[in-house]
């Protein structure tokens, strides 16, 4: 579809997730996008593996650092491989993603929270055995 025809209404047109933006397609540019994504993802992965083996990082901070690195890498994948952007053509994709992330967080954080409380409030197993006998 020609660019001129689109110009006036381009604000209202959506882009499929995983697709490049509709206006102007350059294979070389897209390869560059994938290369940048691959480089960033490789870097973040290497750092993740590195900080689990090194003594350079304060030990209690490692799980938090790993979580941050993983979330950053997921972001890199979304932007450079899945082409999710903040542009007006991506509003539907981003809203669906935001809802998915909300449910994922509710399930994981909620489960951990509730189960940690139940473990905390449960009587030690040997005392339960004593009560039963």
């Amino acid at each position: 579809m020609s660019h001129a025809e689109q110009d006036e209404d381009s604000h209202y047109v959506d882009t499929a997730p995983g697709d490049e933006s509709l206006d102007g397609y350059e294979a070389a540019e897209e390869i560059r996008t994938y290369l940048i994504g691959l480089g960033l993802a490789t870097l973040l992965t290497l750092v993740s593996f590195f900080i689990t083996r090194t003594a350079l990082v304060w030990e209690p901070s490692i799980p938090v650092a790993l979580a941050v690195l993983a979330i950053a890498q997921m972001g890199v994948h979304l932007v450079f491989f899945l082409h999710i952007t903040t542009g007006p053509d991506n509003v539907n994709n981003v809203l669906a993603l935001a809802f998915g992330v909300l449910i994922v967080l509710l399930v994981i954080v909620g489960s951990l929270w509730i189960m940690a409380h139940m473990n905390h409030n449960m009587m030690p197993i040997d005392q339960i055995m004593q009560m039963q006998s």
């Binding site: 995983g18 669906a96 993603l97 998915g100 399930v107 909620g110 951990l112």
Partner: peptide
């Protein structure tokens, strides 16, 4: 088609989140 599959993938990720939580 892409948007519908995107929603399927997000539901798949929600399923994985249950396994992650477990």
């Amino acid at each position: 088609a892409g948007y519908g599959f995107w929603i399927f993938l997000l539901s798949d990720i929600v399923m994985f989140s249950a396994f992650f939580a477990a």
